[in-house]
């Protein structure tokens, strides 16, 4: 199993945000997470992203307790993309330059342009000021920024909420492609029926607990 959560709980201000979460996620799974607002979905995904640690139970990744893993190396394998992401710097290029910069690698223009093409953005977008991008374009750039170095897991927090059909379709195609062709595990928080249908598992989180899990659809 890629992820194994045993009795995981997260407590804030003496209140359980997540409680007794037991879950396994296999390599290449495509899981959608749904549930009411404030139910703990985002907290669950943030714990998987190593942005917060469990206060109770054990969260393992590839058989190892997440607390024993190097968080930087882990986050390069398990990438997390949010709704309404913040783009860095001045231009689109700055955003793709960042993943190269932190790995001390030279910027690979050909690779970045190929990725841009996958989300229907021309090469000239590289030098576009980020302020001139539409919401959908911003989301596409942010998502590419996350997958440029091919993570093993992609955690998505309502990344298509508020986008029009065209942008949604482009992002859906990209996510499906990553999952099918590159076997990247997807864990996606969503309320979108189309996205729920794309996944092979559906988790429902209510009051900090997994209230329902549907298997292969």
């Amino acid at each position: 199993m890629q992820f194994e959560l045993k009795h995981v709980g997260i407590i804030r201000e003496q209140k359980h945000i997540l409680q007794d979460i037991n879950l396994t996620i296999a390599n290449g799974d495509y899981i959608t997470v749904t549930g009411p607002s404030g139910s703990g979905k985002s907290t669950l995904v943030k714990a998987l992203a190593s942005l917060i640690d469990p206060d109770e139970g054990v969260l393992s990744y590839n058989g190892q307790d997440i607390m024993t893993l190097n968080p930087i190396e882990y986050r390069r394998e398990v990438s997390y993309c949010v709704q309404q992401p913040i783009l860095f710097g001045e231009t689109v290029r700055d955003n793709f330059a960042f993943p190269y910069q932190i790995r001390k690698q030279a910027f690979d223009t050909a690779k970045v342009e190929a990725y841009l093409e996958q989300v229907q953005l021309d090469a000239h977008y590289l030098d576009q000021p980020i302020a001139s991008l539409s919401g959908g374009e911003r989301q596409r750039v942010a998502l590419l920024r996350n997958v440029l170095f091919e993570p093993r897991v992609l955690l998505l927090d309502e990344v298509t909420t508020g986008l029009d059909t065209v942008n949604k379709t482009i992002i859906h195609n990209l996510i499906e492609q990553f999952n099918r062709e590159q076997k990247i595990t997807i864990v996606q928080i969503t309320h979108d029926a189309e996205e729920i249908a794309m996944a092979n598992r559906l988790l429902k989180v209510v009051d900090g607990r997994i209230s329902d899990e549907s298997g292969v659809i």
Binding site: R76, S79, Y80, I86, F88, F98, R145, N146, F149
Partner: peptide
């Protein structure tokens, strides 16, 4: 922004 940079695998200084 800091959180998003961390999620991309950045070290604290970056």
């Amino acid at each position: 922004q800091v959180i998003e940079k961390l999620t991309l695998g950045a070290d604290l200084k970056d």
